[in-house]
């Protein structure tokens, strides 16, 4: 197995795990983590895509760095919202999903 394939498979596994978390978790923090997993998986795959033809391609690296910054800001905002919501409601879940708990 070549390095590139390994990268691609790792990316796919991360996306899959994140996807599972997204569906299974109701706690908002877990969901945000799941998003980050999916995002990381995609970036790993993008990195692998950049290695085509053996020559190093700088574009994916630039994209990944930008993407990480974007994902970080999104996560920060999401976590901030979760904290505010948890303070207001007492629980870190959306009202319509907060059942039996």
């Amino acid at each position: 197995m070549s390095g590139v394939t390994l990268y691609a498979l790792t990316g796919a596994a991360l996306v899959g795990t994140g996807f599972f978390g997204l569906i299974a978790a109701r706690h908002l923090l877990r969901r945000v983590l799941a998003f980050n997993l999916i995002g990381s998986g995609l970036f790993v795959y993008l990195g692998a895509a950049g290695a085509r033809g053996g020559e190093a391609d700088p574009v994916p690296q630039a994209l990944i760095i930008t993407g990480i910054v974007v994902a970080l800001s999104a996560s920060a905002l999401a976590v901030g919202l979760i904290v505010a919501l948890a303070r207001a409601r007492g629980r870190a879940m959306l009202p319509e999903e907060d059942v039996g708990g």
Binding site: L77, A78, L81, L85, R89, L94
Partner: peptide, 10 residues
């Protein structure tokens, strides 16, 4: 509003 924002965020 916070819940609506959170749902939007998701």
């Amino acid at each position: 509003a916070l819940a609506a924002a959170m749902r939007y965020m998701l």
